[in-house]
Design a protein around this nucleic acid. Structure first.
Lengths: 203, 203
DNA sequence: GCGCGTAAGTAGTCACTGTCAACAATGTAT
DNA sequence: ATACATTGTTGACAGTGACTACTTACGCGC
């Protein structure tokens, strides 16, 4: 915290501090509807200071979203099993990690898929976001080569995988996966269905 | 509009007018981040008037979300083919209608899955929201009975279907289904995959 | 008919927001 | 040393959601 009253006039690394503080607020609060002024307040700086580092609030949000993609990719890479018994195990592991990222960082995940409704395309065509998508594509490519995944246009299979996982993540974040509607293990069931749809019949 | 300067003191049906106006604003703008004051302005009443009908903005948003579920259910019912050639056709038709609802009413759809982040559960366990879910369940039940869908816990299959369709809808709304990532007909491909996963092998 | 309670609308206010321009402090290159 | 660019501060502005006190006029019981 910035208790020291004789804090120096120049923060030193305010840009990073603003980002860190904003990430903290995303973590503890639910919505990404935090105020820029409170970020400044927490960072121990005047309400106008952040504008020296970000042209506006949207720019900060975009930056946060990018960081989100980086972290998601890292988390997926870390979850990839070293010696997977089957492609199914691999897909399951990755998918679980993906959903876990969403439920662990709900506000951040929402932000990654919201930022400026319409400008989101730009974000997701960015190299850092595409890197996440590449994890999925790589698995599908390998599966097709190994013959355990139907030989179909890979983009379509990617659509099915991305759509399902993103959807399950959003539902999980919103707390909508209640057993009254989707049973006790919805993610497992959905993943089974996905894998069986992708598979070539040799289960 | 309310051009008449000698507009009566009492609006007559302000509650409905507020809802209609808010729906209009959802339709034309993208975000559900409209201001209550502008709703009042457009309805031709003072900025405090809506508070006589809604305790706060969140209450209005919740009401709008409910209307969204009603309309979605209607649209799905209308899209259900009278004499479907196969269950696959039926599922495809319903799913297309669902996604179309989302892309036609992006802000409203977002609202239905956002409203008060965390209070969403309550919304979705409401009778009017469950009615939408029931459309999906009914198809699955019928498919299992007819033998064209694998005999598995229906909740899990519902999870797979809901997750995929919701995910595709969200991606479509955000404009993220660009051909660079998911090819030219992502929805068709994803639905094929879903149906094949659900199916019992007799394709 | 008629009074009047009360639902419905108004106006003003409060604390707060994002953004901006003017100003001050600091570091840096010449 | 001195000019300058960077970074932070302060104060302002319009606009927001929410609350309050006030006013209007609808409609009910007599």
């Amino acid at each position: 915290m910035q208790d020291a009253p004789n804090r120096p006039y120049h923060h030193g690394d305010l840009r990073r501090a603003v980002i860190e503080t904003a990430l903290d607020m995303l973590r503890e609060e639910k919505g990404w509807q935090f105020t820029l002024r409170e970020v400044a307040r927490r960072a121990g700086v005047s309400h106008g200071a952040p504008y020296k580092h970000f042209p506006d609030k949207a720019a900060l949000l975009a930056e946060l979203a990018m960081i989100g993609f980086d972290r998601l990719r890292e988390q997926l890479s870390a979850a990839k099993p070293k010696a997977p018994k089957s492609l199914r195990d691999e897909i399951t592991a990755i998918a679980r990690a993906y959903v876990a990222f969403g439920t662990d960082n709900p506000a951040l995940y929402r932000l990654m898929y919201s930022a400026e409704e319409g400008k989101a395309v730009g974000l997701h065509l960015n190299e850092r976001a595409l890197a996440v998508f590449e994890v999925l594509l790589e698995i599908l490519r390998r599966g097709q080569a190994a013959g355990s995944i139907r030989k179909r246009p890979i983009e379509g299979q990617a659509a099915a995988g991305w759509g399902l996982i993103h959807g399950m993540t959003m539902l999980a974040i919103d707390g909508l996966l209640v057993s009254e509607k989707v049973g006790s293990a919805p993610l497992d069931a959905a993943l089974s269905n996905l894998v069986e749809g992708l598979g070539n019949g040799t289960r």
